[in-house]
């Protein structure tokens, strides 16, 4: 996080939390399914649910799912463009619980038979906080190039992944392992200063115990 995130982002109005932040959350959902989804259901909680039309939150979510940047002038027409790209969108007001941040949304995106679920909040000034992915509790702010690895819950997987990065001299900035229940698939969150190259990603994906390896782009400094 940097002063460049405070004096920024450059963006299409009208709201950094309801437009730029919502777009960034949708960008994360897009990266979870590896491209523009065919279908997305969006639940809007709190202030998001009450004001999403006025703030263009629906357009911003569509734009994020299409992979646009917050300052892309096409955001204004994103709902129309989504239709042309074959992205079917459904928005609804959702009550995600009393204690949830007022600008929270839940996106369920589908692409090529894969489904991903994201729960995230837009916490002001374009900053985001992703708190759940596919049912795993996480805490992501888009500060790093991130790789989400889902693997069988067996010994040696963490060592294998870190070994691979050590051999390629890729410096890990942060790493976390999560699982829902013992013996169920585990989630590894790996974060880097630099984007991960395609060969490293292909090597990780070749591990037999690996279920998925999904890169999420860096969104803030």
């Amino acid at each position: 996080m940097s002063i460049l995130d405070i004096i920024g982002p450059e963006m299409v109005g009208p709201s950094s939390s309801h437009t730029a932040g919502a777009l960034r959350l949708a960008r994360v959902a897009r990266s979870l399914v590896g491209g523009t989804p065919e279908r997305a259901r969006v639940g809007l909680h709190g202030s998001f649910g009450k004001t999403y039309k006025g703030h263009g939150t629906d357009r911003a979510v569509a734009a994020g799912l299409l992979g646009f940047e917050p300052d892309d002038p096409r955001i204004v027409a994103a709902l129309h463009l989504a239709g042309k790209e074959g992205l079917e969108l459904h928005f609804e007001e959702a009550n995600l619980g009393e204690k949830m941040h007022p600008n929270t949304l839940r996106i369920v995106a589908e692409r090529s038979g894969e489904e991903a679920e994201l729960l995230g909040s837009s916490v002001g000034g374009g900053f985001i906080e992703v708190s759940r992915i596919d049912g795993y509790p996480v805490l992501l702010h888009g500060e790093y190039h991130t790789l989400m690895v889902v693997a069988d819950d067996i010994p040696g997987t963490v060592a294998a992944v870190t070994q691979l990065f050590a051999e390629r001299s890729v410096n890990l900035a942060y790493m976390e392992v999560r699982r829902k229940r013992k013996g169920e698939r585990a989630l590894m969150i790996l974060q880097f200063d630099q984007p991960l190259d395609a060969t490293a990603l292909a090597e990780i994906r070749a591990f037999p115990w690996l279920h998925s390896a999904r890169p999420i782009p860096k969104l803030v400094q």
């Binding site: 920024g8 109005g13 009208p14 950094s16 263009g56 955001i75």
Partner: peptide
Amino acid sequence: EINAAMGRIVASPTAGSA
């Protein structure tokens, strides 16, 4: 006024206070 028209601005720190 540009922000309200979905024009390009710099959130500083937010769009509502740009």
